[in-house]
Design a protein around this nucleic acid. Structure first.
Lengths: 208, 208
DNA sequence: TTTCAAGGCAAACAGTCGTTTGCTTTGTAT
DNA sequence: ATACAAAGCAAACGACTGTTTGCCTTGAAA
């Protein structure tokens, strides 16, 4: 996906060929996501990952140049999934506050879902993987633009209408949500409940 | 410190002896804190740590049974330092909201300070180190009791006086603060500014 | 049916990892 | 001055790491 296999596309005499149907790249991504999420990036070894995917270690390097780029691919897919879930949730609402609330619920539900892709986005710290750190941060920043838009649409009281206040609000909200997986327990409050409680605590008085 | 070297203290004939003055345990802790904070727990090797401390790899095992317990010791020291800083800051205030604000400022300042001990507490995820995960979580929970007390002292509006609302408030605030180091830049807003902005955004209307 | 690249196998490389063992140095209490 | 434990050295153990290389299989386009 994000790997360096573009190569030159010559049409003269050497058909580009299509990827095959038995391509096991999806299994690799799934296995990597599961193990990165469960044990952390460094502790998940290539051998563990390919074993789950049913391959041999060397085969992975046909798809990815190295372990870092495998992480980048999983991370990108994670961001894409969260982003899709949030967009879908927001699309159903028209009121600005309801939209933000729906986005927060979808965001947190993605983070604590059984699917490990989103968990990788939260638990892997870009700074711990210098070669791709910038790429990972860019992916995350891109996603957070959704929240920039949502918050800029809020009808806030006059003294909080400036850009700085809205940034503070975004950091407060996203930080609290991103941290929630560290104390979340399936037996406790649901993601929906948690996200709504956060929003209501803030909204109750900020709404006009 | 937290290592398993209690052993039997027999007074009969074999004086307990005191630790020596040239003990290099502090250097080990400092080096481990620095490398755990900079590269993450898994990526920081014993050999790197002892090199900074000026020793050989095997020597570390006189002080700690294994790498996990070294982490636990650093983590414990980190919690102790943050806790001390927060206590000191709170002690200067009498108003409940001012106390909470001072605590938040001290908390965040610890997290982004050049000293790496506090950073370990935030960036190391207990779940990634199963053998000592429970111990680390217990340390963190103990520290957070300070915030439980601070928030229970707040004079909140009637409809937010219950325990659940106060828990939500604590999670919102601590989550946002703990996440802040991921986007904090020394060139941007100061820790004090950030923590105060968070508090003011919440307080403005929750105060009676 | 032939062809050829997409995809994977098999096996190794060169390091690095956490940890253990036996022995030596050295500070300190006596 | 002497004794003894605290502390560290020196050297290795076995397992595991990410990655590379050359060869083989196979699905699909022609």
């Amino acid at each position: 996906m994000a790997s360096a296999k573009s190569s030159a596309r010559k049409k003269s005499r050497a058909p580009p060929k299509a990827p095959r149907a038995d391509n096991r790249l999806p299994q690799i991504l799934d296995a990597a996501a599961a193990l990165f999420a469960a044990r952390g990036y460094q502790a998940a070894s290539i051998r563990d990952i390919v074993k789950v995917a049913g391959m041999l270690p060397g085969s992975l390097y046909y798809h990815f140049a190295n372990k870092d780029e495998l992480l980048a691919a999983v991370y990108g897919e994670g961001v894409r999934r969260i982003s899709t879930a949030v967009s879908a949730a927001v699309a159903k609402e028209s009121d600005p506050w309801a939209g933000l609330e729906a986005a927060c619920v979808a965001h947190l539900e993605s983070l604590v879902a059984p699917s490990p892709y989103a968990k990788v986005v939260i638990s892997v710290q870009p700074a711990d993987v210098p070669p791709v750190a910038k790429a990972l941060i860019a992916l995350r920043d891109g996603y957070e633009q959704q929240f920039v838009a949502l918050i800029s649409a809020l009808p806030l009281p006059l003294h909080l209408r400036d850009r700085k206040s809205r940034t503070t609000l975004r950091m407060l909200l996203l930080g609290a949500l991103n941290w929630a997986p560290t104390w979340y327990r399936p037996s406790g409050a649901s993601p929906k409940r948690i996200a709504r409680d956060f929003i209501h605590l803030i909204k109750a008085e900020l709404a006009p």
